[in-house]
């Protein structure tokens, strides 16, 4: 299945892109999607404890299962206002 992936703030700088599309095994979890990028970007993996994920624009647990066409984003600590 294919999902869309978005990176924001410093995560975008680390990965070098704001948006990606990736093919994953059916039933993959957000955790596994993050591991996919963490393996390619060790600095990203180090931020694991200080970021949250969202699925289709709602905050989501790492254990959330992905579905085809999902929009997943990895969000560093927010600093708006």
């Amino acid at each position: 299945m294919r999902v869309k992936v978005l990176f924001f703030g410093r995560l975008k700088d680390i990965v070098g892109r704001a948006e990606d599309s990736v093919e994953l095994a059916d039933g993959a979890l957000i955790e596994q999607l993050f591991a996919h990028y963490g393996a390619r970007h060790p600095e990203l993996a180090r931020f694991r404890a200080s970021l949250v994920a969202s699925r289709n624009q709602e905050f989501a647990a790492w254990s959330t299962a992905l579905h085809p066409g999902d929009e997943i984003a990895f969000l560093p600590p927010v600093s708006g206002g």
Partner: peptide
């Protein structure tokens, strides 16, 4: 990037 707050997941 400014230090921020981690939203509750």
């Amino acid at each position: 990037w400014a230090d921020g707050e981690l939203p509750p997941a």
